[in-house]
């Protein structure tokens, strides 16, 4: 942490300024209010992608983030609708529940590596979707709809967070909430990567046996990392459910899990902020291509394939070369 340069500080300041002040100004100037929803989605998907990136940091390809996002979305929705609990309590609860599920699943499957781990996490996504269809508490295919907007929070009579339902512009409020969450996530991620745990993770990414032989408790670390990763997934999913005000078994599917992975790979796995960039590019690209109608998917996938074909090491590999590698 001590080697943060002035330039990095400046960049972070610029980034914060642009997402919290410049973007709302530009949007209100141009009148494209629909961009708020797009950008909010980008921020939330970036949180979930950060989790995928973290599991890659210990050398595992995680295609199961959609499962944890769905779990998070359902936990939050059930707590708010059936339990009548404030959304702001259900949000961390969703993350923690996803993390607990991840600990149980992780204990069994984290011994797997490479494509085996990738395959089982992919299967996990499908299984969670099917389970959500089958269980009575998740209301089957009908899902949980008309979730109330997040209510206000006040501590000792002092309002801390306003009631979203009374607000004139919920889009802006959700945008700010999502951005704050995203900034917190990435700050945590950056701190984690540059901590002792981060060093241990890097050693595991390179060679697990070797790391184990010099005394790294790999079984412990990989479960902790997987739990943190799923926590991010649960938070992202819960927030998404709250914005859409509904959760269905199809809210997060296999394709979403694959997209989370694509976000990370495309942004570049060597960089903490890679998944954020990847999410922005992919989601925005998808959104901009909307006007092509039925050719949207075709053009999108062709661009995607072309990017991988000609830049196999991620988008950020273009800009910095080896300078900013972590």
């Amino acid at each position: 942490m001590e080697n943060i340069t002035k330039r990095q500080l400046f960049n972070v300041g610029l980034f914060l300024f642009s997402i919290f002040i410049a973007v709302p100004l530009i949007i209100s100037a141009t009148g494209r209010w629909d961009f708020y929803f797009t950008l909010t989605s980008v921020a939330l998907l970036a949180i979930a992608s950060a989790g995928v990136w973290l599991t890659f940091y210990i050398g595992r390809i995680n295609i199961g983030q959609g499962a944890f996002a769905l779990i998070g979305a359902y936990v939050s929705a059930i707590l708010v609708v059936k339990g009548g609990i404030s959304f702001w309590i259900s949000l961390p609860a969703a993350g923690i529940f996803a993390a607990i599920v991840a600990i149980f699943i992780g204990m069994l499957v984290l011994r797997l590596r490479g494509v085996y781990f990738a395959m089982i996490t992919l299967v996990l996504t499908q299984v969670v979707t099917l389970t959500a269809l089958a269980l009575p508490i998740t209301n089957g295919a009908k899902g949980i709809s008309s979730i109330p907007l997040p209510s206000g929070v006040s501590l000792f009579g002092i309002p801390i967070l306003p009631d979203f339902a009374t607000m004139a512009n919920t889009k802006l409020a959700f945008y700010y909430t999502a951005c704050i969450l995203m900034v917190l996530t990435y700050a945590a991620l950056y701190r984690l990567v540059n901590s002792r745990l981060g060093h241990l993770c890097r050693s595991m990414q390179q060679n697990e046996e070797l790391a184990s032989s010099i005394g790294v408790n790999i079984a412990h670390i990989r479960i902790v990392i997987f739990a943190i990763s799923s926590f991010f997934g649960g938070i992202g999913g819960a927030m998404f459910g709250s914005i859409a005000q509904s959760v269905y078994p199809s809210s997060f599917q296999v394709a979403d899990s694959v997209n989370f992975m694509l976000n990370c790979f495309l942004g570049g796995l060597g960089y903490v902020f890679g998944p954020m960039l990847g999410t922005l590019v992919l989601y925005f690209g998808w959104d901009l291509l909307f006007e092509l109608g039925k050719y949207q998917m075709l053009v999108y996938s062709i661009i995607l394939i072309a990017v991988i074909r000609f830049l196999p090491n991620g988008l950020l590999s273009l800009q910095f070369g080896k300078g900013a590698r972590k």
Binding site: L269, Y300, S301, N313
Partner: peptide, 24 residues
């Protein structure tokens, strides 16, 4: 590519492409 995982990404891209082609 430096990592063999890139092929996974490519395979996912091809899956999307084939889906789009089938639809069209």
């Amino acid at each position: 590519s430096k990592r063999e995982e890139s092929t996974m990404l490519l395979a996912a891209g091809i899956a999307f492409l084939l889906d789009a082609l089938i639809l069209l």
